[in-house]
Computed example of a mutant assay.
Amino acid sequence: MLNQSMESSLSKWMTKLLRHTPDEFGLVLSPEDGSCTMNSLLEVIQGQPRWSWVQQKDIEQVIRNSEKQRFELKSGRIRARYGHSHDKITYVPGEQPAVLYHGTNKKALPSILKEGLSPMSRQYVHLSEGTHFATLAGSRRGELVILKVDTLRAKQLGITFYYAGNEVWLADYVPPECCSIWSPEE
Rank of each mutant, 00 (worst) to 15 (best):
Y91P: 00
I112M: 07
A98K: 10
L73Q: 01
Y91N: 03
H102K: 11
E32G: 02
R81Q: 05
Y162I: 03
K148R: 15
A108V: 00
D58R: 01
W182K: 03
R141M: 09
K107H: 03
R140T: 09
C179P: 04
P31Y: 09
C179R: 06
L29M: 09
D150C: 12
V149E: 00
W13E: 13
I78Q: 07
F133D: 15
S5V: 14
N105W: 07
A108T: 01
P110R: 01
W53G: 04
M38K: 07
S8H: 14
Q4W: 14
H132W: 15
N65S: 10
A164H: 02
L170K: 03
R122P: 00
K114D: 11
G34H: 05
P176W: 09
P93F: 05
P97M: 05
Q46I: 03
H132I: 14
R79Y: 05
T131G: 02
D58E: 10
K148N: 09
P176I: 07
Q4H: 08
T90S: 12
I78E: 02
R79H: 05
L73I: 05
Y91A: 02
G103F: 02
V149T: 08
R122S: 14
K106C: 04
H86Y: 15
N39M: 13
M38W: 01
F161K: 01
H86L: 02
H86I: 06
Q46R: 15
R153I: 10
L2F: 14
Q96E: 13
V44Y: 05
R77T: 12
S180W: 03
K88M: 14
G94E: 09
V44S: 02
C179I: 13
Y124M: 02
R153S: 12
L27P: 05
R64F: 09
H84V: 04
T15M: 04
P97S: 09
E72S: 08
L127F: 06
E67P: 04
L117T: 10
S121N: 14
N3P: 13
Y163D: 14
V174L: 04
Y82N: 00
N105S: 12
S139R: 10
P110W: 01
K148Y: 08
R70A: 11
T21R: 12
P31S: 11
S121W: 01
I63H: 12
I45D: 02
S5Q: 14
Q55F: 06
L109I: 09
D150H: 15
M38Y: 07
E185M: 13
C178M: 15
A137Y: 02
Q123C: 05
P22N: 04
V44M: 02
S30Q: 14
E43Q: 09
N3C: 15
Q55K: 13
S52K: 07
V168F: 01
W169T: 13
D87K: 13
L144F: 10
R19G: 01
L41H: 08
R77F: 13
W53R: 12
R19C: 15
P49R: 08
P175M: 03
G83Q: 04
T37V: 12
I78P: 00
M120C: 11
Q46Y: 06
L41D: 01
I181Y: 14
